[in-house]
């Protein structure tokens, strides 16, 4: 695997610190734009730095977070802590066995590029798309699915026990139905193919119902306008993706979900559009096929690091 340039990482960090400065100038900003576009390493490092920002932006209580993190680094050294061993664990009921990132229930995982279908104990059919992690927590009072990463399709069976799906942004409650839920970076996307589904953002005051043929995304606070579905079934079930006048950049972002490593596309190619049905099983072949219909070049720096550029 080719290395990401440490220089680019260092320069990107210096640039971000400059752009945050109280005395940042117009010249600084222009020089930064020039640096950013001069090569793919720079662009990649910058994008990664922006992704990093999201982690900080997502903390629940910024002021408290800062205090605790400063304190925890100053309190006891690792060595002292090893001697203390196990004193604090369990005091809050936050020990390893009850960590919040591991919800109750059984965990099911698919790796990148894998797809699988399960039938759950109540007869519900659960299809898992690429790179997905879901916990199935059923008991006599309720049936819960916790979607941590990726995308699922649920074909729910008729059952008296309440059924719902939770994501980082809120809850999705089906009303006898067939639909998909995808955990995206900051939002949850829901597409309904049959029946009806209710969306409940965690902190939002409103909820919204989606009917068959409709889709919508929601954050913790808001539900975006719903829109019509393009296809009448989720094509990923057949390991395919649909493009209908889809911008190339958007299409590649979708294809990248099914591929390990880095798949970059030059933002200048956003004007190129693509229509057709493409396989996600062999993404190299799909990339080759696209390069035959669009004026682009697919460059393999390594099998895990692929860049798409305009053809010279």
């Amino acid at each position: 695997m080719e290395r990401i340039s440490r220089d680019a990482i260092k320069q990107a960090s210096v640039w971000m610190a400059r752009l945050w400065a109280d005395d940042v100038t117009e010249q600084d900003k222009q020089a930064f734009q020039a640096w950013r576009t001069v090569n793919t390493d720079n662009e990649f490092a910058w994008q990664q730095l922006e992704i990093l920002q999201q982690k900080f932006n997502n903390v629940p209580d910024p002021q408290l977070t800062r205090k605790v993190l400063v304190k925890s680094s100053q309190t006891v050294s690792r060595r002292q802590f090893l001697l203390l061993g196990g004193v604090s664990i369990g005091t809050l009921g936050l020990g390893l066995s009850t960590r919040s990132e591991r919800p109750n229930g059984d965990e099911y995982v698919t790796v990148t590029g894998e797809m699988k279908t399960l039938t759950l104990s109540d007869g519900t059919i659960l299809a898992m798309n690429t790179a997905t992690r879901v916990y199935v927590d059923f008991n006599q009072y309720e049936r819960k699915l916790h979607l941590l990463e990726g995308e699922i399709m649920v074909t729910s069976s008729h059952h008296v026990t309440p059924f719902y799906i939770s994501t980082a942004q809120g809850m999705v409650v089906p009303i006898g139905t067939r639909f998909t839920v995808q955990q995206k970076t900051d939002t949850t996307q829901v597409k309904v193919y049959e029946g009806e589904v209710a969306l409940y953002p965690t902190t939002g005051a409103n909820n919204k119902h989606l009917l068959a043929g409709e889709q919508a995304q929601f954050s913790r606070e808001y539900i975006a306008e719903k829109s019509d579905l393009q296809a009448n079934d989720a094509l990923w079930l057949e390991q395919k993706i649909l493009a209908q006048e889809t911008p190339l950049t958007e299409f590649i972002a979708e294809l990248a979900r099914y591929r390990r490593g880095v798949l970059n596309v030059d933002p200048k190619l956003a004007h190129l559009k693509l229509t057709g049905i493409f396989s996600t099983q062999d993404t190299d072949k799909t990339l080759y096929n696209i390069s035959q219909v669009l004026p682009i070049e697919v460059r393999y720096r390594t099998p895990l690091w692929v860049s798409i550029k305009g053809r010279q």
Partner: peptide, 18 residues
């Protein structure tokens, strides 16, 4: 306790970077 757990989780994640 759930909310506390969420906070600690976020703290751990950021701390790992720092």
């Amino acid at each position: 306790p759930e909310y506390q757990a969420i906070i600690v989780e976020a703290l751990v994640e950021i701390d790992a970077l720092l």
